[in-house]
Simulated scan of single mutants.
Amino acid sequence: MSPRGVATPDVRELLFAAAERVLAGAEPTALTSRAITDEAGCAKGLLHAHFSGLDEFVAELVLDRFAATAREVGELPARAGLATVAENLTAAALALLTSTSPRITGLAVSRPAAAALVRQALEAGAPGFAATQDSVADYLDAELRLGRLRDGADTASLALALVGTVHHLLMTGWAGSPEPRAQVERLVALLSGAAGSPA
């Protein structure tokens, strides 16, 4: 535990990582301010010193993970012409799928105040699924220009199909669900075939 009066480095990430560990093997109701700070090994009031409450904390955690994924997938257009289209799309889809735990996103959805904060931030331009979808479409456009997709391929619809499906898998990926990686790989194979991309 940090001594009193000693600054805790990168407090947000410390608390975010602790919350993910709390939820790794527990039900969403296990996520409390006390459970988070206990797991982080920090003062009990640290969370409330940086967030107005648990709803804001959960919303900020989801938005932080979405933004990190948007940055990662934002590098996808630079990979045009490298590896295969299927490999690049699979990597992007898996980055999105693992951006945050389904338990975290499910918790955000089940808490109306947290869900509203996430929605407001996304509407105000915070990077999320729309930014990721745009990056995938930009990547496919680049591959189209390189001749690695068939002429006339509907890159915007392909990007929507990929990101929308992965979003669904992320929101419903609970214990007992089919293994999502295999589903992603089958989807990418289907979309690549529809786009006229070689395997």
Results as ranks from 00 to 15, higher is better:
Met1Arg: 11
Gly5Phe: 02
Gly5Ile: 01
Asp10Lys: 07
Arg12Gly: 03
Arg12Tyr: 02
Leu15Ala: 02
Glu20His: 11
Leu23Arg: 11
Ala24Glu: 14
Ala26Leu: 05
Glu27Lys: 14
Pro28Asp: 02
Ala30Ile: 00
Ser33Ile: 09
Arg34Val: 12
Ala43Asp: 12
His48Glu: 00
Gly53Ser: 06
Leu54Cys: 10
Leu54Trp: 11
Asp55Leu: 02
Val58Asp: 00
Leu61Gly: 04
Leu61Ala: 05
Asp64Val: 06
Arg65Lys: 11
Ala68Asn: 04
Ala68Tyr: 03
Ala68Ile: 10
Thr69Arg: 01
Gly81Trp: 00
Ala92Asn: 02
Leu94Trp: 10
Leu96Cys: 04
Leu96Trp: 08
Thr98Trp: 10
Thr98Val: 13
Ser99Gly: 00
Ser101His: 06
Pro102Asn: 06
Gly106Lys: 12
Ala108Met: 03
Val109Met: 06
Arg111Lys: 14
Ala115Ile: 12
Ala116Val: 11
Leu117Ile: 07
Val118Gln: 06
Val118Arg: 15
Gly125His: 07
Phe129Ile: 15
Ala131Pro: 01
Thr132Ser: 00
Asp134Leu: 07
Asp134Pro: 13
Ser135Met: 00
Asp141Met: 07
Asp154Ile: 14
Leu158Val: 09
Leu162Pro: 04
Val163Cys: 02
His167Cys: 10
His168Asp: 06
Leu170Thr: 15
Leu170Ile: 15
Met171Cys: 14
Gly173Pro: 04
Gly176Asp: 02
Glu179Tyr: 03
Pro180Leu: 08
Gln183Asn: 12
Gln183Val: 14
Gln183Glu: 13
Val184Ala: 08
Arg186Phe: 15
Arg186Pro: 06
Leu187Tyr: 11
Val188Leu: 09
Ala189His: 08
Ser192Gln: 07
Gly193Ser: 13
Gly193Tyr: 12
Gly196Arg: 11
Pro198Ile: 08
